[in-house]
């Protein structure tokens, strides 16, 4: 039987792993490759890297952390894929088929497209035809406005006014292999997942839904796995800041009878 996935999300800002809150408070927490090695040790199901750099320049000089940083996304992907033998998904800054080619050629198994997929949905179709549906994740950032989840683009700053559910259905029809659903309202707040919105999505879609945004403690994982049918749960901060949160979460979930690895 197919197991449900628990996926750490690492945000990359100018070559460093950072924490994020409401999409815009960032705090450096480490080196890209060292973090990858740590997740490798925990035998994680999959890793998601989101490059949230606003510009394309990376930090070359090193500073407070006394660790090396890397100056382009190809190098980062290459280095990670040489030490990590689990599925690797990379998102952020993808605007063209060439951006996708570059990531997959260097070791990404999947790419995550957000703003550009919304702006130019044709990109989903051509990318999916070239690499297969399984390689294309469409990411949807949403806020609840007057009781409905609405798509926000450009790092969550711009309210498109479009229903997130309607957009997810379109993305599925165009060839998306998975939907990565991210609640902006809950990003970094540790107040639990948005159960009701996630349920609306899994009821409507025939592709896997990865839910993100809001994990505060291990009980939140138990809640989302028992109250929704989402295929995978993703989280960032909790895995960085809570001691051994990943292996502990897996152990607890297994003990409670959740079908995880």
């Amino acid at each position: 039987m197919l197991k449900r996935r628990l996926i750490p999300v690492l945000n990359i800002l100018n070559g460093h792993i950072v924490r994020s809150e409401h999409f815009n408070v960032h705090q450096k927490i480490g080196n890209v490759v060292n973090q990858a090695a740590r997740y490798n040790e925990w035998d994680v199901d999959e890793l998601i890297y989101l490059d949230i750099s606003r510009n394309r320049t990376y930090d070359l000089g090193r500073d407070d952390l006394k660790v090396k940083s890397y100056n382009n996304i190809e190098d980062i992907i290459k280095l990670i894929s040489k030490v990590c033998f689990m599925p690797l998904a990379f998102g952020g800054g993808i605007k063209t088929l060439e951006d996708i080619d570059l990531r997959i050629k260097n070791g990404a198994d999947k790419v995550i497209i957000n703003t550009e997929a919304f702006r130019n949905p044709e990109l989903i179709r051509i990318a999916s035809e070239k690499y297969g549906r399984q390689a294309i994740i469409v990411s949807i950032d949403y806020r609840i406005i007057e009781d409905s989840p609405l798509v926000h683009t450009q790092f969550g700053q711009f309210n498109t006014g479009v229903s997130a559910l309607q957009w997810a259905r379109e993305a599925e029809a165009l060839g998306a292999g998975e939907v990565f659903l991210n609640s902006i309202d809950r990003d970094g707040l540790a107040t639990g997942f948005d159960i009701s919105t996630i349920n609306e999505f899994t009821k409507e879609l025939k592709i896997p839904v990865i839910s993100c945004g809001g994990a505060g403690d291990l009980d939140d994982f138990y809640e989302i796995f028992t109250k929704t049918n989402c295929s995978a749960v993703a989280a960032g901060n909790i895995f960085h800041f809570t001691e051994r949160a990943y292996p502990r979460a897996k152990k607890e979930l297994k003990k409670e009878g959740i079908n995880v690895r």
């Binding site: 197919l2 197991k3 996935r5 199901d45 399984q134 025939k206 592709i207 896997p208 295929s231 690895r261």
Partner: peptide, 10 residues
């Protein structure tokens, strides 16, 4: 069935 079949299976 959700398709693709994505994830860890025995």
């Amino acid at each position: 069935l959700l398709v693709p079949h994505v994830g860890w299976n025995n």
